[in-house]
C-alpha cells in the first residue's frame, strides 16, 4: 500500500512528473533564448510563472460553461499524470502491463480533445477557431504518429513499453532500424504538444491564444502544467520506444543515459521550433496525408518484412 502510494505521489508519479515538466519548460525557454542570442530566464522562472498565475483573478466571459471550464483542465491533468505513471524511467516501471502503449497513446489524446472542448465552451470567437483548428490538426498528425509508434511494437512483438524497451538490449536501439519512423514520431509529438512550427491552434498572430484565450488564473496554470507534463511523457515514451540503452550499458549508467537522451530530445524540439515557420492548416493536412502517412506505412512495411 505504502509502496503504491510512493509510486503514485513521488516517483514516477505526480512530484517527479511536475519537476520534470518545470525543467522541460525552463530548458526549452533557455534554449530558445540562447538561439535568439538572449540571456534567458533563471531556473525558477516556470515556478514563479505558475505561482503568479495561481494568484491571479479567475474570470470567464458570460455564456461560458463554468463547470466544464473547471473540469476540462483537471481531466487533462489526470490523464497525463496517469500516462506518466506507466512510462518506464530507465527501465524502472512499477505499473507495466501488456498493452500499456495503447493506453498511453489514448491518454495522451485526452488533452487534445479537452482542448477542443475548452474552445467550444468558453464562448469566444478566437476560442472556437482555435478549437476547430486543434481538431483539424489532430486528424493530420495522429494517424502517422500511431502508425509510426506501432513500428517498435511490431518489431518487438509486444505492446508493453517495458518489454519493447528491454528487448532493445538484444536487438539494438530501434532508431537504427526505423529512422523514418523516429522522425515521424517526433513530428507527431510536435503536433501533439502544439509546439511551433505546428502551433497552429494557438498561433498568436492569427487566433490570439486559441482555445485558451478566455482562460486565466488557476485554470490557465493547470493547462500549462498539462502541456508540460504531456511533453515530458511524450519525450520519455519516444526515448523508451526508439533508443532504450537500459539493457545495453551498465546499470549505473542507465539513468544518466536516459536523461541525457531526454534532454537531447528537448533540444531537437526547441531547434525545430526555431528553424521552421508555422505551417498553414491546409499545408499541414497536405503534409500529414500526402507525405507522413505514406512514409509511415512504408516504414511499417519494412518492419514487417524484416520480421519475416
Amino acid at each position: 500500500m505504502a509502496e503504491s502510494l510512493f509510486y503514485l505521489l513521488i516517483f514516477p508519479g505526480i512530484t517527479f512528473q511536475l519537476v520534470c515538466g518545470w525543467f522541460f519548460e525552463w530548458f526549452d525557454r533557455k534554449l530558445q533564448a540562447r538561439f535568439q542570442r538572449r540571456v534567458g530566464p533563471r531556473w525558477f522562472q516556470p515556478l514563479a510563472d505558475l505561482l503568479k498565475l495561481f494568484s491571479k483573478e479567475d474570470l470567464l466571459p458570460s455564456g461560458a460553461n463554468e463547470f466544464a471550464a473547471a473540469a476540462l483542465p483537471l481531466i487533462s491533468l489526470g490523464a497525463v499524470l496517469t500516462a506518466g505513471v506507466y512510462v518506464p524511467i530507465a527501465g524502472f516501471s512499477p505499473a507495466s502491463f501488456e498493452g500499456d502503449l495503447i493506453v498511453i497513446i489514448f491518454l495522451l489524446s485526452v488533452p487534445t480533445l479537452a482542448y477542443y472542448l475548452a474552445g467550444i465552451i468558453s464562448a469566444g470567437i478566437y476560442s472556437v477557431l482555435g478549437g476547430g483548428r486543434s481538431l483539424l490538426q489532430f486528424f493530420s498528425y495522429e494517424v502517422p504518429l500511431l502508425i509510426a509508434l506501432s513500428g517498435p511494437a511490431v518489431m518487438a512483438g509486444t505492446w508493453s513499453i517495458r518489454e519493447i524497451s528491454s528487448i532493445q538490449a538484444e536487438m539494438g536501439p530501434f532508431v537504427l532500424f526505423q529512422p523514418i519512423g523516429f522522425i515521424l514520431a517526433v513530428v507527431g509529438l510536435i503536433g501533439k504538444l502544439k509546439r511551433s512550427p505546428l502551433d497552429i491552434p494557438k498561433a498568436k498572430s492569427e487566433v490570439v491564444a486559441g482555445s485558451l484565450t478566455e482562460f486565466g488564473g488557476v485554470k490557465l496554470a493547470i493547462w500549462n502544467t498539462v502541456m508540460n507534463i504531456q511533453a515530458v511523457v511524450g519525450i520519455f515514451l519516444l526515448v523508451n520506444l526508439y533508443s532504450s540503452w537500459s539493457g545495453i550499458v551498465a546499470p549505473v549508467l542507465a539513468v544518466p543515459v536516459f536523461f541525457l537522451e531526454s534532454v537531447l530530445m528537448i533540444f531537437v524540439l526547441s531547434a525545430a521550433s526555431a528553424v521552421f515557420a508555422r505551417l498553414r492548416i491546409d499545408q499541414l493536412a497536405g503534409l500529414g496525408w500526402k507525405v507522413l502517412v505514406p512514409l509511415a506505412l512504408l516504414q511499417l512495411l519494412v518492419v514487417i518484412l524484416m520480421g519475416v
Partner: peptide, 16 residues
C-alpha cells in the same frame, strides 16, 4: 514578418 509566421529566431536576429 518573421515573427508573424512563427520564425521568432529570425525576428530576434534581424532586430539585433
Amino acid at each position: 514578418l518573421a515573427k508573424h509566421i512563427g520564425l521568432e529566431m529570425v525576428f530576434m536576429h534581424t532586430w539585433h
